[in-house]
Each structure stands twice: as structure tokens, then as C-alpha cells.
Design a protein around this nucleic acid. Sequence first.
DNA 1: AAGCCGGGCAACCGCCGTGCC
DNA 2: CGGCACGGCGGTTGCCCGGCT
Length: 359
Amino acid sequence: MGRSPCCDKVSLKRGPWTPEEDQKLLSYIQEHGHGSWRALPSKAGLQRCGKSCRLRWSNYLRPDIKRGKFSLQEEQAIIQLHAFLGNRWSAIATHLPKRTDNEIKNYWNTHLKKRLTKMGIDPMTHKPKSHDVLGCGQPKVVANLSHMAQWESARLQAEARLVRESRLVSHHYHSQLLNRATAITHPTLPPCLDVLKVWHGAWTTRPGKDIITSAMFNGFFASNNGNLESPTSILKSSDNMLNASTSVGLLHENPFITDMSYVGKPSNVYEDWVKGIMDNSNELNKIIEPIDSTHYVAHDDDSIGFPGFMEGSTNLVTSTVRTNGPDDDNVVGVFEENDINYWRNVLNVVNSPMGSPVF
DNA sequence: AAGCCGGGCAACCGCCGTGCC
DNA sequence: CGGCACGGCGGTTGCCCGGCT
């Protein structure tokens, strides 16, 4: 009943590629494009299955691949994106120019995971392994479960929508932009998960479009206190949590929805945000300010880290911490000490010299 | 010098979603 | 509507190589 294998495993070559095979594949694709992968091997004179050719091309031969050691910025991005996206290597890879998902996956499994483990941080949850140290009580765990569930729900909806849109956008996007001369900035949308589309999806699918749950902040900051799963794996158990009540905070109107002049802007903003991760991770400390012994407030300062992500989200009140935010137009959220410390730890880890006691 | 062991990574496997017929 | 082809994805395997005994 299962599918037939993609190739005749008896007659086709497997294992490491030879330079001659690489050359055949490379020159064929450069001349003809890959076309149908299944048909490619015979046309290119290769005794390989199409799948093997595709993998060899996408993981090794593609001209836009950077090989070699990962930079500190890339490590930071991987850790932060993994906290945000889970084991979704292809999504992570879209934010690391010239790196393949396979390479990132290998690097995570062989380097970063071990480093986080040695730090006492669970590489899957991105939380400290000792829950007792956190002092997280049961109600807080439950609250965050529901927050994460809502975040995950919104994210999945938005991703599904993005996939659908991506198929339409090549046909419609250019004409749409032509009709909106005020907003032409990018010829294409990012070919990947777009966090702002997640927000968009959450806003547009909830009854009140100007309401956002604190789960979104908690999701972004991976603040799933306690023994929770990663944003990806929590999907398995989220169904029964979706009806859990979640306190919400009021937002200003979402400009991406109400102001059509923002057409095209989300991709810019998100790219800026990713660039912010890559370039300005250490700036996190600059936008976090303690308000008492255990709570912190985040300011929305466009001039520093995580640019744009907080746009349209002023005066958010995060229910898990307090009911009133500071009287500051730039305040976008209040976070718990554990979250702030977690991110500081992560950033310290990736910024530590390899010979530091951490390792 | 030889054998063992573990780390790193390229490649493979199997499942899934989508589009086409 | 169902089956199939195809591409994409994440998990896993197995080989290679360097370090250690």
C-alpha cells in the first residue's frame, strides 16, 4: 500500500558523491536547470536517484552556499530562532543566508545543543533544567500552557495562510503593489515563516482585532515556565488547551491591518527584526529595564534591538505579571525575571570565548 | 604502531503535503 | 474522489578522521 521507492535501489549508486558525479550534476543544472528531479539523473548521465541528486544539489553544490565555521552572529541567530521555531530547520535556514537546513541541523545537534546542556539549559525547551530553582507555581504553569497554546494556534494558522498566500502572491503581488504606489518597497515576500504574518493572523482570526494575548510575547520570549515543550512540540498537546481562558491586554490598532499604506511593509519589518537578531542581540539589555526585584519592562525603541517587532503594540499589559504597565508610551510589555535571565544567559553563552569556564 | 573511541557531517530514510490526472 | 508523482522536511545512519591509550 505504501508508495513505491523513488528509485531502483539495486541498480543505482548510493553513498558519497565523487567529484566526477558532482561535475556532471553541476554542469547539467547550470545548463538546463534541474527540472524534474526524477528525470534528471538519466539526462545528466548519473546512476543516482533523483532524490539523491536533489539533496546533493541543495546541500552541497548550490552556488549560494557558504561553508565553514559558523560565526557568533549565526550561532546567536540559530539559538534564538530555535527557541522561537523549534526544530523547524528549513524555517531557521531561511534566516541564515547561504546556510542549509541540513548544515544548521547538524551544527545544532553537534555543537549548540551540547553547549546549552552544559549550561544547564534544556535545549528543547530553552529553559533551565531545574524547575525548582525557578519557583514556578502550578497556576503559572497552567497559565503559560494556555498562552503557548494560543500562540501556537495563531502561528499555525498564520503559517497555513502564508503557504496559501505564497502560491497566490507570485501572481497577485506585483499587480497589487502597482495599485498601491505608496508602499512599493520589496518585489517579493519572504519565502518563509513571517512572524508579522503570525501576528496578523492572530489579530484577524480573533473576534477583537485590536486584542492580543500575552501569549504572543511569551511565545516570542520563549517564556514557557516550567516543564513545557518547545513551541513546535507543544502542538501535540495544545488542542485541549485552546479554550483555556487567557487574560489579554489592549493594543493600539494594528497598522498592518487598518492602514493599507502598510502593504508590503511587514516583510521589511520582519527582515529588519531578523537583522536585528543577527546584528544587535546584545542590545536586548538596553531595552529591558527592571521595575522591581523580579519584573522587567521592555521598551519599544526603534533605534535598537528587535526593530519593528513591537510595532503597533504599545501599552500592552501582560497579565501573567501585573495588571498595569508603567505610564510610558514606549512600554510594550512586562516580563518576568526568569525570561530576561534566560535570554541573557543564552546571549552570554554564545558570546563566551570557547575557552571560558562555561565550556 | 595499532586499536579503540567519539565527534562531525554527508547522505539516506521515511513521512507528509500538494498538485495533477 | 482516489491514487500517484513529486518535492520538502526532520530524524537517523554510517562513514571518516583525529585523538587517545
